[in-house]
């Protein structure tokens, strides 16, 4: 057994190099993904439906997205209070819950926030599903929360000026303000009975999502600075509710490796016999 030990060392060092490269590759993949999408982690045992400070949120990976003033359509605005939103999400296979977090120096009655989703297979422009001139786009579903109302409004739009509350209200929301930060929780069932108006969330599938925020402060004349289309907006990003863990690819990999090993074995046996 003596001559085997330097050989084993060599094999082990080769193996650990392969494992190291796998880890490095895997880590960089995860990193690239964090900045472009919101992931809803699958949890069992209760979602924090109206508690932005629940411990369960720590199991959701945070994502942060930059905001711009809405300039696409009049009335536009050139400067807004909120520069970034932090987003987390969780789901339990039945309901999804989003946590929106952003810095706002003052708590105002007219503070508000919204999530926007593409609905169906047709793509939509991120500005309220504004109609495209050359291609037919789809509608957007908007979940709108306002501090004053203390609840969410489930809305549909296909362009500026077409925004209206739906006849079926499926979304709940609750905002909590403390230390200069708004934390707003939105929740809804993953699927609803109105797929032509509501975004349908299938675990494992990527869906386009965008964000909007209104700082309800007033100027010296007592007028609202941010209202209606004058708000902070984000571009489209991706959202995905995690699918239940699927270990089948580990099994396929093990089968393939076993087949390769068997092939080697048969090949070498044949070669040895032939000589």
């Amino acid at each position: 057994m003596k001559p085997a030990s330097p050989m084993m060392k060599q094999i082990l060092s080769c193996g650990s190099a392969v494992i190291a490269s796998l880890i490095i590759g895997g880590a960089s993949l995860t990193f690239a993904q964090e900045s472009v999408s919101v992931r809803a982690t699958l949890v069992t045992g209760g979602l924090p439906l109206d508690d932005p400070n629940a411990a369960a949120w720590s199991s959701a990976p945070p994502a942060s997205f930059p905001m711009s003033p809405q300039v696409h359509w009049p009335n536009r605005i050139q400067e807004v209070t909120v520069k970034d939103v932090g987003v987390r999400a969780l789901h339990d296979g039945k309901q999804v819950v989003f946590l929106l977090e952003y810095a706002d120096p003052t708590q105002d009655q007219d503070d508000g926030a919204a999530l926007e989703f593409m609905v169906g297979d047709k793509k939509a422009h991120f500005a309220h599903g504004q109609p495209m001139l050359q291609v037919e786009g789809g509608p957007v579903n908007i979940w709108f929360w306002k501090n004053k109302a203390g609840k969410a409004v489930d809305m549909s739009a296909k362009g500026f000026g077409t925004l209206k509350p739906q006849s079926h209200q499926d979304v709940n929301a609750k905002g909590v303000y403390s230390n200069g930060t708004w934390k707003v929780v939105f929740s809804r069932n993953l699927s609803t009975d109105h797929p032509e108006e509501d975004v349908q969330i299938t675990p494992g599938e990527f869906i386009s999502i965008a964000f909007a925020v209104w700082d309800g402060r007033k100027d010296a004349a007592g007028e609202l600075v941010e209202k209606g289309s004058q708000k902070a907006v984000s571009s489209w990003w991706y959202f995905r509710a995690d699918a239940p863990p699927d270990y089948s690819s580990y099994m396929y990999a093990a089968i393939a490796a076993a087949l390769a090993l068997g092939f080697q074995f048969v090949l070498i046996r044949k070669l040895k016999k032939g000589q």
Binding site: Y250, Y252, A253, A254, A256, L259, A260, L261, Q264
Partner: peptide, 13 residues
């Protein structure tokens, strides 16, 4: 002989 099956398994995964 050890790395080849591992590589096949990795590619399949």
């Amino acid at each position: 002989l050890i790395l080849f099956p591992l590589l096949v398994g990795w590619q399949t995964y």
